[in-house]
Amino acid sequence: MISVVLDVVGGLLLVLGLGLMTIALVGVLRMQGTYSKLHAQSLATGPGVCFVLASSVATENAATISYAAVGIVFTVLTAPVASHAIARAARRRGAEAEPR
């Protein structure tokens, strides 16, 4: 019973994560401008990969779930650093617009 519930939850999380990654890729391909692409990309590097790692609950394997938890903590702490580094480089290189 528990196993079936976990399978369903894991499957839903997986679909959600892969959906977010797909939308992020569409966004990166469609949007114009470096900053706008960064918004789309952070959809995948933040919530997207967290959902895919969280779907490890369906494996019911303690080692897998604990590694995935480490991965989630790590992703939450580092994804903003990478996107800030790119945004800062874009501003230093003189990409678009005055602040409002």
């Binding site: 960064l38 933040g46 702490l77 903003p80 945004a87």
Partner: peptide, 15 residues
């Protein structure tokens, strides 16, 4: 604050 703004997809910290 930077991590909170950065992990939210609708804001990107620039400076």
């Amino acid at each position: 604050w930077g991590i909170r703004l950065g992990i939210t997809p609708n804001t990107v910290v620039v400076e």
